[in-house]
Structure formats: C-alpha cells, structure tokens
Amino acid sequence: MKRSGSSLSGRLKVLGDNVNTDLIHNPFDFTIERKKLNCELLGGPPGKKERSVFLAGRNFGLGSSRFSTVLALRNSNLAAALAVSFSRIFERNLACAGIFPVKLAPGITGTLGRIRENDAIRLVFSRQPGGSFYSVDAGLGSRRFPALGAVDGYLYEIAECGGMAEYLAKTK
C-alpha cells in the first residue's frame, strides 16, 4: 500500500451482497496464532507488496464476531473495504484491525461503470466539520469519484491508529 497522510491506494477485489464472515475466513481455520491467519479470498498468505481494497455490496460481513476474520484480512494486506452497507460488528472489527470501512454513498454504485478485478484505486479521506465522519474521494484509473462514500469518525480514528489496541495505547 502506498499511504501518505489521509490517503491510501490498492487493488480492487469485487464481492457481492451478503458476503458473510464464514466465507471470508472459515471457522475451521480459527487460531489465536495471529501470524497463521490469512484470507483465501485475497490470495492466501501475505507476500505481495500491494494492498487490496474490497468493493462489496449490501450487508457485508454478516455473521460472527470472530476478530480472527479481520486479522486474516489484515495479514492478507487488506487496507480498506467499500460496501453498500456493513454488518455492525464486522464494520467495527475492520476498524479495530486498522482497516478502513467505507460506506458507499447512496446510488453511487450505479455511476461507477465497469469495474474490473485488480483495478487500481486510490482513496482520499477528508475530515468533515464536527468529526462525526470522513468523506472519501476515489480515483479509479483516470476517473475521479468525489464523495464516493464516508467512514464513521470514531471508526476512522481507530483505523488510523492501526487498530483498537493501538488506539487504546494512544488514548491512555
């Protein structure tokens, strides 16, 4: 991932609606040995240098509260997840693992045009007055999508720290 200030870039991985936590990381692969966790949807163990960004549909991450699921995503270099909507626990878990959960603006998916797997995407985050959310502008190749979506302000702060453990350490 190339990351400077409030932006990040990665390669898109496109998912559909209702992708649940068991599909993202099978419960049979649960372990607390964090280095062993990885996500097959993202090509398994880390090794590639480039980061990934999910583009998902409705109700992304429904199901389990297992934090191992998002640790697997982090280990497999997921930097952000864009979705029409998130399951509540999963959205929080993503941020707690240092992954930015971006809710797409209503109706935006219809304007994105043709999206291909592995398209390069760049996300730029801007804090909005009051800090209750960060708006997200995106660049997809030569195309620009201002106000593509938003990240909840509290979750952004956690993800920006690198996760909840780091956030707690910082806010002692």
Partner: peptide
C-alpha cells in the same frame, strides 16, 4: 449486544 474481541478489550 455482541462485539468483537477488540471492543471487549476496550
């Protein structure tokens, strides 16, 4: 309500 391990950590 349910939470992930890191919210429970908090």
């Amino acid at each position: 309500a349910g939470y992930g391990s890191m919210d429970i950590l908090g």
